[in-house]
Design a protein around this nucleic acid. Structure first.
Length: 467
RNA sequence: AGCGGGAUGGAGCAGUCAGGUCAGCUCGUGAGGCCCAUAACCUCAAGGUCGGUAGUUCAAAUCUACCUCCCGCUACCA
C-alpha cells in the first residue's frame, strides 16, 4: 500500500474575506499535497471553516439570519477563492458538519470521564456591550476599547480543562519529538512559556447556543478552540480516512502556534489520541513593508492577487518570496519583477527557444547528462522540510544552467540533435518539479514536450509592463 | 519587564543549527558576447571592515559575553 500523507490548513473564520494570508497558507498546503502525490504517496488535504462562536452568532443576528444560514452564505467565498487559486483539497470541513460535532462530543465526554474537565468559575473582565471578556492589556484606561465604557469583573460558571496537568507531558513531547514545533526558532519560545506554567483553560460557554453542546451539561457549549482544533481529527474518522491520522503536518500562521502546540496536544494526550507529527508555523505578509490591516484597507484579497499576473505567478511569488517560516513583504512590483524575470525571461524563454530549435532540427536520444546538474536531492529535502523558497531556488538555478548550456553549445549553429535532446529532457523534469507550484503552466510545458515531435511553444508567461 | 527573532555591497534577500570549500543570489549600474528565443539569453567588471566591542580558535558572517537599533510574542482573541 502507498505511504500516506496528511496535510491541513487552519479552518478559517468565515466572516473574513479570503485574503493573502489565507491564500498563502492554503497554497503552501496545496503545493505540499501535490508534491507528496508526486512522490507516490496517498494524500489527504484538509481545509475548511470555523463556523461557531459568539461573533458569528452576533453577526448573524444583525443580518437577521440564523447562524447556520448566515455561514452558509459565507462559505462560497472561500470555496471560490480556492478554486481560482487551483487548490486541490480533498475535503472542506465545517465545524457545523454533523460528523465533526459528534466526534467533538464523544471526546468531550471522554475527557470529562478522565477527570480532565471540571466545573469551576471563570472570572474575567467583561464588557456587557461586547458580551465578551477582555484581558488587562486590551483595555484602554480600564475601559472597553470599543464601547469606551467601564469594564466590570464578572464571574461565570464554566468548565475547565486541566491544562496545568500537562505541563510536564508537553515538555516531554517537545523533547521527544524535536520537529513537532517547526520551524526550529519558534520552538524555544513555546518551551519557555510552557515552563513558566500553564493555567487551566475554560472550555465552555453558557448563555448562547451557537456551538457544540457539552454532552454532560447541555446548558453549555464547547469553547471554540476545543471544537475547532478537533476538526483535524474528526475529518479522519470516516472509515476510508482513518489511516491518515496522525497528521503529517498542520500548516498554520504564527499567530496560532500556541493553540496548536500547547492546547491541541494536551487535548489529544488527555483523549488518548496520537499527536500529529509537525505543526509548522509560517510568518506574516506585510504589504509594501507595512503591516496588513483591514481598517486601513491594506488587505490583498484573492482576486487582486490573481489579477496582477495570473494564478501561477501569484502562487510562485508567495512561495518563492518569503523564506518559509519567516515574514515576507508583498508588493505588486516585486510580484511583477519575479513574474517577468524568473517566469517569463528565464523559464518561459528557455521553453520558447528550446522548442523552436527542436522543431527546426529535431532531437535524438541521449543519456541525459545535463540532468545530472540538477540537485534533485536538495530539492526533495527542502520540500520535506517545507522550505519552498529554497526548493524553487534550486529549480531555478538549474534553469540558469540550461540557459548557460544552450548559450555555450550554440545548437542553432551546430544543429546538434543531442544537445537539443539534453535540453528537452531537462525541461521535462523541470515541468515535473514545478507542477506543484505552477500547475497550469507546468501542464502546458509538459504538453509541448510530450512527444519527440516538438512544435514551437506559444508564449507561456506574457510579461507585465509597467503601469 | 520577561521570552523569541533580526541587523550582510545602492535596493531586497540567502548563508549562521554541523567554523575553513563563503562572502553568495536577484534587481539596479558599467562593458562586452550571442543572434536560437518572450528587446529575451550568456560573460566580465565596479560596489560589502557580514550592526558595535571584547573573547574562543591555526581559522569566525557563523561560536561565547556585553552593547546599540528594529520587530514579534506574553495565553481564553478565529
Amino acid at each position: 500500500m502507498a505511504k500516506k500523507y496528511y496535510v491541513t490548513t487552519p479552518i478559517y473564520y468565515p466572516n473574513d474575506i479570503p485574503h493573502i494570508g489565507h491564500a498563502y497558507t492554503t497554497i503552501a498546503a496545496d503545493v505540499i499535497a501535490r508534491w507528496q502525490k508526486l512522490q507516490g504517496k496517498e494524500v489527504f488535504f484538509l481545509t475548511g471553516t470555523d463556523d461557531h462562536g459568539k461573533k458569528i452568532a452576533q453577526a448573524a443576528e444583525k443580518a437577521k439570519l440564523s447562524p447556520k444560514e448566515f455561514t452558509d452564505q459565507l462559505i462560497p467565498k472561500f470555496k471560490d477563492a480556492w478554486k481560482k487559486l487551483n487548490i486541490q483539497y480533498d475535503r472542506f470541513i465545517r465545524t457545523t458538519d454533523p460528523d465533526h460535532e459528534k466526534i467533538v462530543q464523544e471526546i468531550l465526554q471522554k475527557v470529562f470521564d478522565n477527570g480532565d474537565i471540571y466545573k469551576g468559575e471563570y472570572e474575567g473582565l467583561y464588557c456587557t456591550g461586547c458580551e465578551a471578556y477582555y484581558t488587562e492589556k486590551d483595555l484602554e484606561d480600564g475601559c472597553c476599547p470599543i464601547h469606551k465604557t467601564k469594564i466590570e469583573k464578572l464571574k461565570e460558571e464554566t468548565y475547565f480543562f486541566k491544562l496545568s496537568k500537562y505541563q510536564k507531558p508537553l515538555l516531554d513531547l517537545y523533547k521527544k519529538n524535536p520537529t513537532f514545533i517547526s520551524p526550529k526558532h519558534r520552538k524555544q519560545e513555546i518551551i519557555n512559556r510552557v515552563k513558566e506554567g500553564l493555567k487551566d483553560l475554560s472550555v465552555s460557554r453558557a448563555g448562547f447556543d451557537w456551538g457544540v453542546p457539552l454532552p454532560f451539561d447541555k446548558d453549555h457549549v464547547s469553547y471554540v478552540w476545543f471544537d475547532a482544533l478537533f476538526n483535524y481529527y474528526s475529518a479522519t474518522r470516516e472509515k476510508s480516512k482513518q489511516k491518515f491520522w496522525p497528521a503529517d503536518v498542520h500548516l498554520i500562521g504564527k499567530d496560532i502556534l500556541w493553540f496548536h502546540t500547547v492546547y491541541w496536544p494536551a487535548f489529544l494526550l488527555s483523549a488518548g489520541i496520537d499527536i500529529p507529527k509537525t505543526v509548522f508555523a509560517h510568518g506574516w505578509w506585510t504589504f509594501n513593508n507595512e503591516k496588513i490591516s483591514k481598517s486601513r484597507g491594506k488587505v490583498i484579497n484573492v482576486d487582486e492577487l490573481i489579477a496582477i499576473a495570473g494564478v501561477d505567478s501569484a502562487r510562485y511569488f508567495l512561495l518563492r518570496e518569503a523564506s518559509f517560516g519567516e515574514d515576507g513583504d508583498f508588493s505588486e512590483d516585486a510580484l511583477i519583477e519575479r513574474h517577468n524575470n524568473e517566469l517569463a525571461n528565464k523559464l518561459g524563454n528557455l521553453v520558447s527557444r528550446t522548442s523552436a530549435l527542436a522543431e527546426k532540427y529535431g532531437i535524438t536520444k541521449t543519456d541525459k547528462k545535463l540532468l545530472k546538474k540538477l540537485k534533485l536531492k536538495e530539492i526533495e529535502k527542502n520540500l520535506e522540510e517545507f522550505r519552498t523558497d529554497k526548493a524553487l531556488n534550486e529549480i531555478f538555478a538549474f534553469i540558469d544552467v540550461c540557459n548557460e548550456y544552450i548559450q555555450d553549445k550554440k545548437p542553432w549553429e551546430t544543429k546538434d540533435k543531442k544537445v537539443l535532446n539534453e535540453l528537452v529532457e531537462a525541461i521535462r523534469e523541470i515541468a515535473r518539479l514545478l507542477s506543484p507550484f505552477i500547475p497550469e503552466s507546468a501542464e502546458k510545458i509538459s504538453e509541448i514536450f510530450k512527444s519527440d515531435n516538438i512544435k514551437k511553444a506559444p508564449i507561456l508567461f506574457q510579461k507585465v509592463e509597467d503601469k
